[in-house]
């Protein structure tokens, strides 16, 4: 696949490295020669110094022959304009623009531009990490098995506890619901507001996190 990357900052550099591994043909444009100098010596793609909205620079980068384009300059406006030009003027099939501003993703999608808001992503991820701190064990059953209390995540509401159980790894020991606790059966359905008391193999904690985030 031929990929054009506009901007060689942290994200641009990281993208280049990530894509070079999978044998894509990568071209990078940045107005600052210093930025391009950050690319590793092993980079075999093309580097172009120039304005990412300059028609001649884009022509030199053969934008019309690219399969995909990522606009990752520091300015949201530059990225959105570059992405839209790539779509409607140069007919690049796959285009993604990085934006800082949250809340605009949907409106740009309607304009044919796929955006990734690193700000929203960061907020969600941090909130997620903060709210999963309850995965700290409540108690330990000797070495290697823990008891964890977890609020039922919205996506598991209405599903049987078998959606969460893993033989030999994760077991739902008890559920607290409406001020009372009981021992569930495999077909017991989870309800919003349930607090789950789990017995988990310490080595399966990551597995549990994956199921809860799902």
């Amino acid at each position: 696949m031929r990929v054009l990357i506009l901007g060689c900052g942290r994200i641009g550099t990281g993208l280049v490295q990530r894509l070079s591994v999978s044998d894509h043909s990568v071209t990078v444009i940045d107005p600052a020669p210093k930025a391009l100098a950050r690319l590793p010596a092993s980079f075999r793609g093309r580097k172009l110094v120039g304005d990412v909205l300059d028609r001649h620079v884009l022509a030199e980068a053969e934008i019309e022959r690219q399969d995909a384009l990522a606009a990752v300059m520091p300015s949201d406006d530059v990225n959105v304009v570059a992405a839209r030009l790539a779509r409607v003027v140069f007919h690049v099939p796959r285009v993604v623009a990085r934006v800082y501003s949250p809340h605009t993703t949907e409106i740009y999608y309607r304009l044919g531009i796929q955006t990734v808001s690193t700000t929203s992503w960061g907020i969600n991820r941090i909130a997620e990490l903060l709210s999963y701190s309850e995965l700290e064990p409540v108690a330990s059953l000797g070495s290697g098995v823990d008891i964890l209390d977890v609020a039922v995540p919205p996506l598991l509401v209405g599903r049987p506890i078998s959606a969460l159980s893993r033989p030999g790894e994760i077991q739902v020991a008890a559920i607290s619901r409406g001020g009372k606790s009981f021992l569930p059966q495999l077909e017991t359905l989870l309800e919003a507001g349930d607090l789950l008391h789990l017995i988990v193999l310490t080595s399966a904690t990551d597995h549990l996190v994956a199921i809860l985030r799902h």
Partner: peptide
């Protein structure tokens, strides 16, 4: 005073 800003505005005004 910024061309890219003006183009974001014109795209939104027309298409959104």
């Amino acid at each position: 005073g910024a061309d890219e800003t003006n183009l974001v505005i014109t795209s939104l005004a027309r298409f959104a």
